[in-house]
């Protein structure tokens, strides 16, 4: 259900050095409980006083049980210091998995349904985030999955406004404009050529 892929580096902004973290594929109830215990109160101060009841976890456990061995999606997570540092859900089949890029229209790709980092890693929420690199590692997991699925590294996503510069500038994705069918978020694609260039990129 939840399997370690390997140890990856995250940059500790407090310590000024790299720390080991573990990249996972899949999810378990403990991950969900860690999100509820650590992430939610930082997003919503009132949430700490309204912790989910047992029925919530019974529902979550049943849902996870039913969602084992999915055919068309993969969930990735990063853990360090006993906490979930970030998560990403990637979809491998369906209407969103056809390229809109002029380089290869309608070719299959993987679509990032969500990429989320822990609130303590977000510049928008905290002045000095704990770790840098969570988004980079999760995104490269999506590229790796795309290669594994024989999609040549093609990846698509809808960026939140604060992250557009990262996807456009640092990951060299093509900005295909605001998508009126997705809350006007800008739609980005990493083409086959861009994926090759990204993987072979120097510092």
């Amino acid at each position: 259900m939840k399997q370690a892929i390997g140890t990856i580096p995250l940059f500790g902004l407090g310590s000024g050095k790299f720390h080991d973290a573990v990249l996972f594929r899949g999810i378990d109830l403990a991950t969900l409980q860690s999100i509820e215990a650590s992430w939610t109160p930082m997003f919503d101060a009132a949430a700490a006083e309204n912790r989910p009841e047992d029925a919530h976890w019974e529902w979550a456990a049943k849902a996870l049980q039913a969602l084992q061995n999915p055919l068309n999606y993969e969930l990735f997570g990063i853990e360090a210091d006993g906490e979930t540092q970030g998560m990403m859900l990637v979809v491998k089949g369906g209407a969103k998995c056809f390229s809109r890029h002029p380089e290869h229209p309608r070719m299959p790709l993987v679509y990032v349904d969500f990429l989320a980092t822990a609130p303590w890693n977000r510049r928008g929420l905290i002045e000095t985030p704990t770790y840098k690199g969570v988004g980079r590692v999760l995104f490269m997991s999506a590229v790796s999955l795309s290669i594994e699925e024989e999609f040549a590294g093609r990846v698509a996503l809808h960026s939140l406004p604060g992250a557009e510069a990262f996807y456009r500038g640092r990951l060299s994705m093509t900005d295909m404009g605001a998508d009126k069918d997705y809350q006007n978020l800008r739609y980005f694609e990493l083409s086959t050529t861009q994926a090759k260039q990204l993987i072979s990129a120097g510092p």
């Binding site: 902004l13 859900l89 990032v112 349904d113 969500f114 990429l115 989320a116 980092t117 977000r122 510049r123 928008g124 985030p129 840098k132 690199g133 969570v134 988004g135 980079r136 999760l138 995104f139 996503l157 809808h158 960026s159 939140l160 604060g162 992250a163 510069a165 990262f166 996807y167 640092r170």
Partner: peptide, 10 residues
């Protein structure tokens, strides 16, 4: 990488 946001999707 700069220290910045990386969130995507829902």
């Amino acid at each position: 990488d700069p220290i910045g946001e990386v969130e995507a999707g829902r």
